[in-house]
């Protein structure tokens, strides 16, 4: 009964999102692309922290690796981004695997593990800033073809095409998360998150399960990175690997409700729309108000953290009678 209701609501939401480009204008589409992109990344991060309890504060690393893998392959060899996504995901899974291996094998935990992820992200950012094959600090520009027809294979085209691509990607990650949560691995992850020692005592191979979480999360994040590269067409190491990207990426997941299926999506939409609203407001008050927008953002964040520590979604789910969702 409860599951049926959740499924019906989900289908309704999906239909609304599918129709959105026909109803709204270009501006709405661009905002929705941003919302969905952030929701995609928040879901990918949520696998590692929300499900398996391993805090990563350096996920921009995988966004950057994916973006540069897809971007550079296209720039140098004209490789389609869909192949770039596979390559980027493989590279990110490898790098995530190395970080996870080092961290878990050397017993780097909690705050220290989080700082390890920051260190790798920042290290790579500076490395790519001096990596001339991908443009170094002057950036990598993907060739833009005329945008009057859509080329889905090469991801060159109009905003509506990008919209459906990121909608598809977000939906795919949602389904992957849903599937895994119901599987043995999903239960292992949550056992580790709640009490790693107890999980180990039950005979769960915690090292393997955690490695799976890191590598899957990294690979999915990198796919998002490839989308980012082709949507923005310009790549700077400064911004692709930026610390603030790592932070923005996780805000949505935590605000929405970490460890739940729907929380990261809700949180990403809320924060993106809030940011957009504050930008509009700031523009109405004239320029020079960039700081005001960010202060407002910071204050609202403070309030949400103070009042809804577990995120917005769990409470909302109860209101909507959706407790049945496997959201623990």
């Amino acid at each position: 009964m409860a599951m049926g209701r959740a499924t019906r609501m989900l289908i309704g939401l999906m239909v609304a999102l599918l129709l959105a480009p026909f109803i709204g204008n270009d501006y709405l589409v661009s905002v929705l692309i941003l919302c969905l992109f952030n929701a995609y990344l928040a879901q990918a991060w949520n696998i590692m922290m929300g499900f398996a309890g391993q805090l990563s504060l350096g996920h921009a690393l995988y966004v950057g690796l994916g973006a540069y893998a897809g971007g550079a392959l296209f720039f140098h060899y004209g490789t389609p981004p869909w192949i770039g996504m596979i390559v980027g995901a493989a590279i990110a899974a490898l790098v995530g695997g190395v970080i996870g291996f080092l961290g878990f094998r050397f017993g780097v935990k909690g705050v220290y593990f989080a700082l390890l992820t920051i260190a790798f992200a920042e290290f790579t950012r500076i490395l790519f800033d001096h990596f001339t094959w991908v443009g170094g600090s002057s950036g990598l520009y993907l060739p833009v073809v005329r945008a009057d027809h859509d080329n889905l294979l090469l991801l060159r085209g109009r905003p509506a095409m990008f919209y459906y691509v990121i909608l598809g990607l977000s939906a795919a990650v949602f389904l992957i998360c849903h599937r895994i949560l119901g599987s043995r691995l999903g239960y292992y992850w949550r056992a580790i998150r709640e009490d790693q020692d107890a999980a180990q005592a039950l005979g769960i191979d915690t090292f393997k399960a955690k490695m799976a979480a890191v590598m899957l999360s990294a690979a999915l994040t990198a796919v998002g990175g490839v989308f980012y590269a082709f949507y923005t067409n310009t790549l700077y190491a400064e911004s692709a690997f930026a610390m603030h990207r790592s932070i923005e990426l996780i805000l949505g997941a935590i605000i929405g409700g970490m460890g739940t299926l729907f929380g990261p999506i809700l949180g990403a939409f809320l924060l993106t729309l809030l940011g957009e609203l504050l930008t509009r407001l700031a523009e109405n008050f004239g320029h020079g108000f960039e700081g005001v927008k960010q202060i407002g953002y910071g204050l609202i964040l403070l309030v949400i953290i103070a009042l809804r520590r577990e995120g917005v979604w769990p409470r909302l789910a109860k209101r909507l009678g959706l407790d049945g969702e496997k959201a623990s």
């Binding site: 805090l55 964040l301 403070l302």
Partner: peptide, 18 residues
């Protein structure tokens, strides 16, 4: 830890932009 981290991050955001 992650909640503490977010809290101080929000404080940091307010400071920087001030």
């Amino acid at each position: 830890e992650h909640v503490q981290f977010l809290l101080l991050l929000a404080v940091a955001m307010v400071f920087t932009n001030a």
